[in-house]
Simulated scan of single mutants.
Amino acid sequence: MPFFLLPFPIVDPVAVHLGPLPIRWYALAYIGGFIFGWMGLRALVSNERLWAANQPRPTREGVDDLLVNAALGIIIGGRLGHVLIYDPSFYLAHPLEIFQTWKGGMAFHGGLIGCIIGMWLFARARALPFLTISDICAAVAPIGLFFGRLANFIKPEMWGRPSDVPWAMVFPGAGDMPRHPSQLYEAGLEGVALFILLWLAARGGALRRPGLVTGLFGLGYGAARIFCEFFREPDPVQEALPNGLTMGMTLSLPLVVIGAVLLIFSLRRRSALA
């Protein structure tokens, strides 16, 4: 037991009651992510300095439809990803639980696949380059990741492994052992640090090389997630794999590879768009 522990800040998972309707922090995290992501998308597409002359991209108004596509893909894909990847036997026995999203259970990698499908449908309908659409969505994705990890911390869920670091916490429902606040590690790396990296890249002209921001996101998120998995306690049934691996590590490794390939692809082009 470490000499000093940070107390876990007990927060009611329900942020506010609107009559009989409870509004949970989890729901507010998604709402906040979508609202600030929408604002970021509109800021990106309307800043002429970030784009080459006549480079095709969505309009400020078109971003609204893109957000709807992406949001539906994230919610549907995230839930189905959790159901199919992490606990299919439970949901097969209790199919009505699939729709009870307020109990938690959203898989990032499933949400990513759903978002990709939504972006592809939008790009196809508007005859826009898919990589340009994925670049602007990737640039704002860390906003949603940040809010989502804070919601994991408040709930609390997805806590860390036992530790004696000075900032270890005893999480309700996780026993008496102090643990890493791994949700905050992920909020800092997958959210804040990755957001800064991608926006600096965008302001430096990365959007003129379609695929560059997407590649940076895949490489950055995958590396951050794999690193944080060393501190996060995996579910022994759903997430733990042999040889110290976790499901999160395994699913994030392809993102690192795909991100690296996109980086090489975009940087090896003769030049950025004029």
Results as ranks from 00 to 15, higher is better:
74 I>N: 01
58 P>T: 05
222 G>D: 09
63 V>K: 06
248 G>M: 09
21 L>V: 15
120 W>E: 05
273 L>N: 10
95 P>L: 12
227 F>T: 10
94 H>D: 07
53 A>D: 14
76 I>C: 03
158 M>R: 07
37 G>P: 07
21 L>S: 06
33 G>W: 01
235 D>Q: 13
191 G>K: 01
182 S>M: 09
229 E>Y: 10
114 G>N: 08
226 I>D: 04
35 I>R: 04
136 I>D: 01
10 I>G: 09
137 C>D: 01
53 A>T: 15
152 N>F: 01
80 L>W: 10
274 A>M: 13
31 I>K: 00
141 A>F: 00
145 L>R: 02
153 F>G: 00
140 V>R: 00
147 F>T: 00
212 L>F: 13
220 G>L: 06
118 G>D: 03
250 T>S: 14
64 D>A: 14
13 P>T: 00
170 V>E: 04
101 T>G: 01
167 W>G: 07
265 F>E: 12
145 L>D: 00
18 L>F: 15
53 A>N: 13
242 P>N: 14
261 V>R: 07
202 A>Q: 06
227 F>N: 07
267 L>V: 13
164 D>A: 15
175 G>S: 10
143 I>V: 09
138 A>Q: 04
53 A>G: 10
52 A>H: 12
11 V>N: 06
246 T>N: 11
114 G>R: 09
6 L>N: 07
47 N>E: 15
133 I>A: 08
250 T>E: 05
175 G>K: 09
207 L>D: 04
111 G>Q: 05
58 P>M: 03
200 L>T: 03
198 L>K: 01
56 P>N: 11
227 F>L: 15
202 A>E: 02
273 L>R: 14
65 D>L: 15
27 A>Q: 07
149 R>H: 03
63 V>G: 05
200 L>N: 08
163 S>E: 10
205 G>F: 03
168 A>V: 08
256 V>H: 07
175 G>R: 13
76 I>V: 13
61 E>T: 13
168 A>E: 07
88 P>E: 13
28 L>T: 06
113 I>M: 11
136 I>L: 07
102 W>K: 02
135 D>N: 11
41 L>N: 03
234 P>M: 11
104 G>V: 01
28 L>F: 12
95 P>V: 09
247 M>A: 14
34 F>M: 14
260 A>V: 12
105 G>K: 05
211 G>V: 08
172 P>F: 15
186 E>F: 02
94 H>S: 12
92 L>T: 13
71 A>Q: 08
240 A>W: 02
255 L>V: 06
245 L>Y: 12
57 R>Q: 10
97 E>V: 03
48 E>V: 11
18 L>M: 12
263 L>D: 01
120 W>F: 12
128 L>Q: 07
83 V>E: 04
249 M>R: 10
221 Y>F: 14
191 G>S: 06
186 E>D: 05
170 V>C: 06
58 P>F: 04
20 P>W: 14
29 A>V: 00
193 A>G: 05
163 S>Y: 04
163 S>L: 09
24 R>M: 07
223 A>W: 09
27 A>M: 02
243 N>V: 11
89 S>Y: 14
207 L>A: 06
206 A>I: 03
